[in-house]
Amino acid sequence: MTGRDLHLIGAAATEETGLGIEVTGLRVRFGSVEAVAGVDLRVEQGQSLGLLGRNGAGKSTTMRVLAGVVPPAAGSVVVGGHDVRAHPLEAKRAVGYCPDVGGLVPRATPWEHLQLTARLRDLTGWEDRGRELLERFDLGDVAHRVTAGFSHGMARRLSVVLAALHEPAVLLLDEPFDGVDPVGVEATFEVIEDARARGAAVLVSTHLRDLAVDVCSEVAVLRGGARMATIPSGFMAGDDGARAYRALLAG
């Protein structure tokens, strides 16, 4: 079975429900700390949802649950039509995940990262897309340089490339704009729009409200591990949106 076959399986499962992501009553605990406290999220096919909130709001933990990295303590989590607890492998196959930190091998080059991703996902004929993504993110000239010397922004850009390579049914981008220059921001916008155009569900976690408003159709604001509101992105734009956002963060 090729990587393209896996993509089609994920897409078909999503078509049955019309939802790429459905989270109900998600709770995650680390010892005595409840990092996520009953979060509900829904992201339809072709939709992008932004997760906004301060550090410690539960954004990255929610992303890690969706990516199959952290198990939920309670609640229902379905990605690409697959329950992450009942069908973890199928759920992971449907997802492309850019973590908030780490994920890169310091002694490997961007091209070697692409090769590893392709091998793990059994992709064939991926080389042209890999080259195109590296060029789009201004990483073509360093494709064969080890990532140990990369700036934070370069590492962020490569992480988005790796998440998008196999055209997943669900694209999870955790802080993709952190330390990224305008070229990288524009390239990430293009990847998100491409994903939406082919019917993928996109979840973007960021602390940058303006960028979330620009690229997402809705935003969900988290505070203290709980979802305070889900709002059409237009209502979060400009000075009025900034005031509304501050009010939600303050409680």
Rank of each mutant, 00 (worst) to 15 (best):
residue 1 M to C: 02
residue 2 T to V: 07
residue 3 G to P: 03
residue 4 R to W: 15
residue 6 L to Y: 10
residue 7 H to V: 03
residue 13 A to I: 00
residue 14 T to L: 14
residue 14 T to H: 05
residue 15 E to I: 02
residue 15 E to N: 05
residue 17 T to V: 00
residue 20 G to R: 10
residue 20 G to A: 15
residue 21 I to C: 02
residue 23 V to C: 04
residue 26 L to H: 13
residue 27 R to A: 08
residue 30 F to L: 10
residue 33 V to G: 01
residue 33 V to S: 12
residue 34 E to M: 05
residue 37 A to R: 15
residue 37 A to T: 03
residue 39 V to R: 08
residue 40 D to L: 06
residue 40 D to V: 02
residue 43 V to D: 01
residue 52 L to I: 05
residue 53 G to V: 07
residue 56 G to T: 10
residue 58 G to H: 13
residue 58 G to K: 09
residue 59 K to Q: 11
residue 59 K to T: 03
residue 63 M to F: 15
residue 63 M to Y: 08
residue 64 R to F: 04
residue 67 A to M: 08
residue 72 P to D: 13
residue 76 S to P: 00
residue 76 S to F: 04
residue 76 S to A: 15
residue 79 V to I: 14
residue 85 R to W: 00
residue 90 E to S: 08
residue 90 E to H: 07
residue 94 A to Q: 04
residue 96 G to Y: 07
residue 96 G to I: 04
residue 96 G to P: 03
residue 97 Y to P: 00
residue 99 P to W: 14
residue 99 P to E: 14
residue 103 G to W: 08
residue 104 L to T: 06
residue 107 R to S: 10
residue 108 A to M: 15
residue 109 T to I: 02
residue 111 W to N: 01
residue 114 L to V: 06
residue 117 T to I: 11
residue 118 A to V: 11
residue 123 L to E: 09
residue 125 G to W: 14
residue 125 G to M: 06
residue 126 W to P: 00
residue 131 R to T: 11
residue 133 L to W: 08
residue 136 R to I: 00
residue 136 R to H: 11
residue 136 R to Y: 02
residue 137 F to N: 01
residue 139 L to H: 04
residue 142 V to K: 05
residue 142 V to D: 04
residue 145 R to S: 06
residue 147 T to R: 02
residue 150 F to N: 05
residue 152 H to A: 09
residue 153 G to T: 14
residue 156 R to T: 06
residue 162 L to P: 01
residue 164 A to S: 12
residue 166 H to R: 05
residue 166 H to Y: 09
residue 166 H to N: 06
residue 167 E to R: 15
residue 168 P to D: 09
residue 168 P to S: 09
residue 170 V to I: 11
residue 172 L to C: 06
residue 172 L to S: 07
residue 172 L to E: 12
residue 178 D to H: 13
residue 180 V to S: 09
residue 181 D to Q: 06
residue 183 V to P: 00
residue 184 G to M: 07
residue 187 A to W: 05
residue 188 T to N: 10
residue 189 F to C: 02
residue 192 I to H: 02
residue 195 A to R: 12
residue 205 S to Y: 03
residue 205 S to Q: 06
residue 208 L to A: 04
residue 211 L to Q: 12
residue 215 V to W: 10
residue 218 E to M: 04
residue 226 A to Q: 12
residue 227 R to K: 14
residue 228 M to G: 00
residue 229 A to H: 10
residue 237 A to P: 01
residue 237 A to I: 06
residue 238 G to F: 13
residue 239 D to K: 13
residue 240 D to G: 08
residue 240 D to P: 07
residue 241 G to Y: 11
residue 242 A to D: 13
residue 242 A to V: 09
